[in-house]
């Protein structure tokens, strides 16, 4: 069994986030191991999304946000000081967000064509030369399993795609920037069962090459995808589970309710860094 501290991809220490002095995260400590999909689970309002958004500092875009603590990413390109974001290994916010891809709960396509949805962040935010643009867009769409569906309709408005297609387009948009980490905020919550399954398969495939951290609302989905589970309650990570094999939804349900640990799960409570 991996020791989560030995090869972590994400290290969170004493992270507290509040909006207009209403605390959402309280002193969170978490080490997410590299490899596979890490899933944050918890009741609604437990702070999953805020924790996820702390990784690419998207909370900073929301009014009244106040963050304390440290967040650090360890990627194949080296350490990344996410927060407080000072010191020699710090990067600018746009640079950070290019290196940390994110997909939202509801598909957030830009009001533009399918092609420019992927190409615009590449060209504008990442400064990709025009000559490479077409290849990289195609590459990203292929990786997001969308290419053969939109091949002849690249100039069509992205808003005319179906929900599942839009979500995969968002995934392609994130992948095109070649991120070091991929963040997903309940990526299948607004999709029907079929489209959700397709995105799940895609995520499992991607996780082989790229660390994925996601928030999930479904217990069965969490068990299908997770190689690492972090259970949240009232702004804290109350447990982490490094091996989900053999767990049932009932086990997970009990974990969410904060009851005693099931025998095969490794837990961590109030770990101090």
């Amino acid at each position: 069994m991996d020791n989560p501290a030995s090869s972590p991809v994400l290290l969170v220490r004493d992270l507290s986030v509040s909006f207009f002095d209403r605390p959402v995260l309280r002193q969170v400590n978490l080490a997410v191991p590299a490899g596979g999909i890490a899933v944050l689970v918890g009741r609604s309002g437990s702070g999953k999304t805020t924790l996820l958004r702390a990784v690419n500092r998207l909370n900073d875009e929301v009014a009244g946000c106040r963050t304390e603590g440290t967040v650090e990413l360890v990627t194949k390109r080296g350490r990344l000081n996410v927060f407080p974001g000072t010191g020699p290994d710090a990067v600018t916010l746009p640079e950070l967000r290019r290196r940390v891809g994110m997909v939202f709960q509801t598909p957030q396509v830009f009001p533009a064509s399918v092609f420019s949805n992927v190409a615009m962040p590449l060209a504008v935010a990442a400064g990709c030369p025009r000559s490479e643009l077409e290849d990289r867009v195609r590459d990203a769409l292929v990786r997001a399993d969308l290419w053969h569906e939109v091949e002849g309709r690249l100039a069509m408005s992205a808003e005319r795609l179906s929900g599942g297609q839009q979500q995969r387009l968002c995934l392609a948009r994130a992948l095109a920037l070649e991120p070091d980490v991929l963040l997903l905020d309940e990526p299948t919550a607004s999709l029907d069962v079929h489209a959700a399954r397709r995105v799940e398969e895609l995520l499992l495939e991607l996780a082989g090459r790229l660390p994925v951290i996601m928030v999930s609302h479904g217990l069965s989905q969490s068990l299908r995808l997770a190689s690492f589970l972090a259970v949240m309650e009232e702004g804290r990570v109350i447990r982490t589970v490094c091996d989900t094999s053999g767990m049932t939804e009932g086990d997970l349900e009990r974990l969410l309710d904060g009851e005693e640990k099931p025998c095969d799960a490794q837990t961590m409570r109030g770990k101090t860094a």
């Binding site: 909370n59 106040r66 407080p84 000072t86 600018t92 916010l93």
Partner: peptide, 15 residues
């Protein structure tokens, strides 16, 4: 103690 708003670094020079 740090305030997030203070520590935001200006975005890329582009634009």
């Amino acid at each position: 103690m740090r305030n997030a708003e203070v520590s935001i670094r200006p975005g890329g020079r582009s634009g």
